[in-house]
Amino acid sequence: MQRKVTKAIFPVAGLGTRFLPATKSVPKEIMTLVDRPLIQYAIDEAREAGIKEFIFVTSRGKGALEDYFDCAPQLEQTLREKGKTELLEAVEATNMESGAIAYIRQHKAMGLGHAVACASRLVADEPFAVILPDDVIAGETSCLKQMVDAYQETGGCMVAAMEVPPSKASSYGVLDVKEDMGAMVSVKGMVEKPAPGTEPSNLAVIGRYILTPDIFTNLKGQGEGAGGEIQLTDAIATEIAKGQNVFGYRFQGRRYDCGSKAGFLQATVAFALERDDLRDELSQYLEELVVARRAAE
């Protein structure tokens, strides 16, 4: 039996330039899908997977993100006095227990691998998860929970994997598959953003990882990779070269790329349509919109 995964790193230091000017003053991670910020979806997924300690790698200008997880006594008291129980419960669910959450500053934007390395002292010698909030994954069982359950059988390192069209493979880290076992694949190599036509497969790495602390040793001695940044996939590839087990996990669920405007809008519509209080009105509006567009063509 493997050690339980109870710590997760959330790299949230990015500037969110694709969402300017909104992200000039609002961290991208607290932009909302319906009525919950991106980061709340990531936290809820981690909690479902059994994560107890949450490590945020941040940067200057992320104060609002830190405040989001703090208690709001005045707001909570007002809701309590007005008998708004449902809203009060929703607000209290965002509070994090003292000591459960930690913040580390990444002073220079040097890539995902560098962001993860910034948290090495807090992780120490335990296996840990990495969650990228930009990737919102909807499913009956959360993606990370699926991976944690599988990890208990396999150990090693594990990455979430999703099939993508070959034309889009150059935007991802791509797996070189050793053996395909269905939901799980063993990996013999990883290539970060391969040149078009050189991708070893169509299995792309998505923003969920379960890693061993050996990754920190690899990152420490690692130079710059694709894009002039320190790449996490390169550190995982080093584990493969050392003969360690690395797996890709085909998760069950729908992934939304909320790092792009189109993906963010798609997720907003999809999550809203799952809500009993929004479904009917929104569905009617979308149907009317489609009819109006067709009539105008």
Rank of each mutant, 00 (worst) to 15 (best):
E53D: 12
L79N: 08
G182V: 02
S98M: 05
G139H: 09
A46E: 06
F247W: 14
I101F: 00
R105G: 00
I30S: 10
P200Q: 06
F264W: 04
T94K: 13
D70R: 12
D280G: 08
E81I: 11
T217N: 15
Q284Y: 01
R36I: 00
F128R: 10
A237D: 15
V57I: 08
L88W: 07
E53M: 07
F56V: 04
R3P: 10
A46K: 09
G228P: 13
Y256W: 12
E48W: 01
A204W: 01
F69Y: 00
A161C: 07
R294T: 08
L286T: 05
V123T: 05
H107K: 14
S186V: 05
T6F: 00
K82G: 03
L175I: 07
M96F: 07
G156Q: 08
Y151F: 14
V136Y: 03
P196I: 06
V116L: 06
G63K: 13
E192K: 15
I240K: 09
E199D: 14
T212H: 07
G155F: 08
F264N: 02
H107I: 10
A296H: 05
V26E: 13
K220V: 01
V130R: 01
A100Y: 00
M181R: 15
T78M: 14
A226Q: 10
D149P: 07
D257C: 08
R80L: 14
E297R: 15
G61E: 13
T268K: 05
D176E: 14
L232T: 05
A204L: 02
E297I: 11
T154F: 10
T32M: 11
A241K: 15
A296M: 10
C258A: 10
A241R: 15
A267R: 06
Y41G: 03
D280V: 10
G227Y: 02
A183H: 03
D135V: 00
A226V: 11
R3K: 15
G248W: 02
T85A: 14
K7G: 01
M96D: 01
V34Y: 01
V191R: 14
P166A: 15
T58F: 01
K242P: 00
V246D: 05
E140P: 12
L122V: 00
M158N: 11
S201C: 06
K145A: 15
F19A: 01
T94F: 03
E45R: 08
A235S: 11
F247P: 02
L33Q: 07
A150F: 04
S283H: 09
G61T: 12
M147S: 10
S142N: 06
P196V: 05
R208M: 08
A129H: 08
V246M: 06
I104Q: 08
R279W: 04
R18Q: 11
E179C: 04
V130W: 00
E274P: 01
A13R: 02
K24N: 14
T32E: 15
E281H: 09
M147V: 12
Q266R: 14
V187S: 07
Y249R: 06
Y172G: 09
G197N: 08
